[in-house]
């Protein structure tokens, strides 16, 4: 693997376009560094950071099912005050780190963005899309005007660091929400967060499996929704805004679908469970490279957005 995967995204350089999405393994600096160094991901996303400590929802919070994973972790965060060990651990590597941030109000977003920007992550990703934390996440991403207001507040707080709000597929018109964010100053768009909320009922227990009852779906089942959302966003933004696409990418062919829909970086999360280790990043890129060789595609960039032509 080599040159064909070198990626420039919002002016930032990455060795490849494979990204660990927010919420996966992102609790601890040492684990994030392993995903970069052992797993070979191009970038990693820190689990959404809030202003104050949050415990999240009670267990069961994450449960695999036949076609993916359902989760209602509920945005646990140590809070901005308790992350010193992690910043220290990531020191010198922040050019490969995306910082996801959460808030319960527009002011929260602004304040946490300001505090996170000090550590100079490659990008800042306002989480306006988590479907299982009341008053947070998706509460700010369903309507274009709320999403735009968060984007504007964050953008004003972080200086030159690119801002990339993460979209929810539950928005009535995800293209419209993304366009409003771009008009409010977003440098890139991340899509999609989990789908739902959904519910699993254990029929022997006669009860919902998640303690929160409802949770977001990820994994292979949601790929067609993610691909469509990225397609919509690319269309709504005239193909001119970088998109980090994700949702059910488990193999090279999935990544290429997202590329053709318009994404130029690619999140791989739930698939870690299917292979049960970090090799999934290298595996997916290897499969992508094999397809490119077969098809005579020299650079992945050459297929980004081609499904629109």
């Amino acid at each position: 693997m080599g040159l064909e995967f070198k990626t420039v995204f919002c002016g930032k350089k990455f060795p490849n376009p494979a990204v660990l999405p927010s919420g996966f393994l992102g609790v601890n600096a040492e684990v994030l560094l392993r995903v970069l160094d052992e797993g070979g991901a191009g970038a990693v996303t820190m689990k959404s950071i809030g202003l104050v400590e949050r415990e999240g929802n009670p267990n069961p919070t994450v449960v695999p099912w036949e076609h993916g994973v359902i989760n209602a972790v509920g945005l646990p965060t140590p809070g901005i005050e308790n992350l010193n060990d992690e910043w220290q651990g990531l020191n010198g590597r922040m050019d490969r780190v995306i910082a996801s941030i959460l808030g319960g109000s527009f002011e929260d977003f602004e304040e946490v963005a300001k505090a996170v920007a000090v550590h100079k992550p490659a990008l800042i990703e306002p989480n306006i899309s988590c479907p299982h934390a009341k008053g947070h996440g998706q509460a700010f991403g369903l309507r274009a005007e709320d999403a735009a207001k968060v984007t504007e507040k964050v953008k004003n707080a972080v200086g030159k660091i690119p801002v990339m709000p993460k979209m929810t597929p539950q928005a009535h018109d995800i293209g419209e929400v993304a366009k409003a964010c771009v008009d409010a100053g977003a440098d890139a768009i991340c899509a999609i967060n989990t789908v739902g909320p959904g519910m699993l009922i254990n029929i022997e227990a006669r009860a919902p499996v998640l303690a929160n009852k409802r949770g977001g779906l990820s994994g292979p089942a949601i790929k067609p929704i993610g691909v469509r959302c990225v397609y919509d966003i690319y269309e709504a933004t005239g193909g001119e805004v970088p998109i980090l696409g994700m949702g059910g990418i488990s193999h090279g062919r999935d990544l290429i679908e997202y590329a053709m829909a318009g994404a130029s970086m690619y999140g791989i999360g739930t698939a870690i469970h299917y292979t049960r280790d970090l090799d999934v990043f290298g595996d997916v890129l290897g499969e992508t490279e094999k397809w490119m060789n077969q098809e005579g595609v020299k650079n992945l960039k050459d297929v980004v957005g081609v499904a629109h032509k």
Binding site: L25, G26, V27, V31, H273
Partner: peptide, 20 residues
């Protein structure tokens, strides 16, 4: 522990995932 399958990262000790 939360997920038990190496996804959420909650159970880490240093850089190791206790669950997997």
């Amino acid at each position: 522990m939360k997920c038990a399958v190496g996804l959420c990262g909650e159970c880490c000790i240093n850089g190791k995932l206790v669950c997997v």
